[in-house]
Design a protein around this nucleic acid. Structure first.
Lengths: 159, 159
DNA sequence: GCAAATAGCACTGTTTCAGTGCTATATTGA
DNA sequence: TCAATATAGCACTGAAACAGTGCTATTTGC
């Protein structure tokens, strides 16, 4: 289905929570006290985010996680790619799938290139959406998604 | 995963094949001779498309399916909705999920409204993408996706 | 009547996903 | 030093979604 996994949702909740808390580390326990999330699963997810360099881990007592980058530089696209892996919309453009033989239809597939365009647009939207813009913020950040997407459309139009 | 199902891919292939063949019905056999697709599955899918009124079915010998609407009026969004059901990106906004109790996080979820905005954009892209524009056509249709999306962005900016 | 097509319904095997068990390691503070 | 509180890592299980198939009935054209 065309749907984000719960892992990604939990990652987003955790990351949003860490915005503007960069000074102090956020522990898994703290997250699960504030939101009703499965503790162990959130722990696994944060480990993955740490591996990708999106968050910093601090072990030991008083430890936890904190953003490794300013929230403006963490994109929704990178978060999704970290948790769900391959940025593929169809099975066609999945790397994993191409690896084990690829799509049977591939040589005669009439929708490859059109679907690829759609995929590009979605991915561009994800890349244009920063973690900052996902925070229900008071400021002008609200229009950031639209603004960035418009810019990227202008770019693709010239191409 | 954030991926279209194979059912949707097959539906797209079938529908694209029918564009500019509105006069003569296309049978499942014909489709599976041209493309290496699982015959029975394609049959099931076309039945669903017929139920939704996207294609017309013609029973009996010399029967098959044909587009029920001009390809300009069939949107990618409607195709996806027909095959995959609910237009949800996250679990939060899934109707099915809301029905059986809903999301535990819902009341305190910090990402609901931001994610909803992203979902809106993707869905708008799907709605702005016509079956016609998915055909690897020679004409100016190539820029239709970009053009329509730009219009819808202009609309959402004023909002 | 026969052949070729859709209609409908249920079923199976596979894969992906959500969530958990267990153990080791690091850090803080008393 | 020891205990408490963190993360690190790895493997496993149960459930749900999905891809694909079996079978039978019905319709239509020749």
């Amino acid at each position: 289905m065309l749907q984000l996994t719960k892992r990604t949702e939990y990652a987003l909740i955790a990351l949003v929570h860490m915005v503007d808390r960069q000074d102090q580390a956020t522990s898994v326990r703290e997250l699960c006290e504030r939101y009703p999330l499965p503790r162990r699963l959130v722990a696994e997810i944060l480990k993955d985010l740490a591996h990708e360099g999106l968050v910093l881990s601090h072990r030991g007592s008083q430890g936890g996680y904190s953003l490794a980058l300013p929230p403006e530089r963490i994109t929704l696209g990178r978060i999704i790619a970290t948790i769900e892996g391959v940025p593929a919309i169809t099975n066609c453009d999945s790397i994993a799938h191409a690896k084990d033989g690829g799509c049977e239809v591939h040589p005669v597939c009439p929708i490859r290139s059109p679907i690829e365009r759609v995929r590009e647009h979605i991915w561009r939207l994800f890349e244009a959406t920063s973690l900052r813009s996902l925070v229900p913020a008071p400021h002008a950040a609200r229009s950031e998604v639209i603004q960035r997407l418009r810019e990227s459309l202008a770019a693709s139009a010239t191409t």
